[in-house]
């Protein structure tokens, strides 16, 4: 019977798909574990730098620093951290929804697209791209993100950019990641001011001088903020992919069971009809 044969071939297809997705799930799972560990381990470092910067900002007039001062020339820049590969579930769609929202607010804004998916999306929706970076390595190091940091900092200092914001998927846990905007430049001096309480003011000594330390610390802070965004994004990507592949494997498994039921039913039907044929034949012969 042709339908039974069709069903067997579909069962085979579902089985093959589930094998592939299972393998991809396991690959992502191991990558995810590493990426998550890296992202979580460097969080204290990012926090310590931010704390130090806050301390420093309380004591010296940060508003004088070039990277803190606001200017109105140039464009708004959004650095969008997406993935190079697909099959990562709702990762990219969620990211791009935020991207479109940002675009509506800043019609003149330019995009620095990171990852092939962001490049493709920006081209498809006719966004103004300033630069693109693809094929970032999986095991990301600070040196990999430096070109991006240099690009945005230099552009800001040359008054080519008005503001720089990073859009990335913040890693919450394996099952949930949320898109997040983080303004990198100009540094938010209000955020620093809000933590300033007169009683907490202590007299700090600076060695060599507050200005010199600030000059070193601020670029360091920016480098690290961007690096941290990358780590979070990688952790989110692998988590999202693993969950997506897990769902795909489960669905393939379910499909297999359903098809098997159909196959068994049709087999049973054919047996019953054959038996019926035989009995009617014998009955007619005997009479």
């Amino acid at each position: 019977m042709s339908s039974a044969r069709q069903v067997t071939s579909r069962i085979k297809t579902a089985k093959n798909i589930s094998k592939i997705t299972k393998a991809m799930e396991m690959v992502s799972a191991s990558k995810m574990r590493r990426a998550q560990a890296q992202a979580l381990q460097s969080r204290p470092f990012a926090k310590a730098i931010a704390d130090t910067l806050h301390t420093l900002a309380k004591e010296s007039n940060v508003a004088l620093h070039d990277l803190f001062t606001k200017h109105s020339e140039g464009d708004d820049i959004l650095v969008c951290l997406s993935t190079d590969r697909g099959l990562s579930g709702s990762f990219n769609p969620n990211l791009f929804r935020e991207l479109v929202g940002w675009r509506k607010k800043h019609p003149q804004g330019k995009i620095v697209a990171i990852g092939k998916k962001a490049v493709a999306f920006a081209q498809f929706s006719g966004m103004n791209m300033h630069a693109q970076f693809t094929s970032m390595p999986d095991r990301i190091t600070l040196a990999d993100t430096l070109p991006i940091t240099t690009l945005v900092t230099q552009g800001y200092l040359d008054k080519e950019f008005k503001s720089v914001t990073v859009l990335f998927m913040d890693f919450v846990n394996t099952l949930s990641q949320k898109p997040m905007f983080q303004q990198i430049l100009p540094l938010d001096s209000e955020l620093v001011d809000s933590t300033l309480s007169p009683s907490a003011k202590t007299e700090y000594l600076f060695e060599p001088s507050a200005q010199e330390i600030l000059d070193k610390l601020v670029p360091y802070y920016i480098e690290n903020a961007i690096f941290q965004a990358f780590l979070e994004s990688k952790a989110s990507e692998h988590s999202a992919r693993m969950v997506a592949m897990k769902n795909a494997s489960e669905n393939a498994q379910e499909l297999q069971e359903e098809l098997k039921l159909i196959y068994n039913k049709s087999r049973q039907a054919s047996i019953t009809s054959e038996l019926l044929d035989i009995t009617t034949a014998t009955l007619t012969l005997n009479t």
Partner: peptide
Amino acid sequence: PAASGEITILPGHAALVTQ
């Protein structure tokens, strides 16, 4: 190893930021 030479810190040290 501070930028301007080695420093030793004991409890009660003045607040300091250094490279």
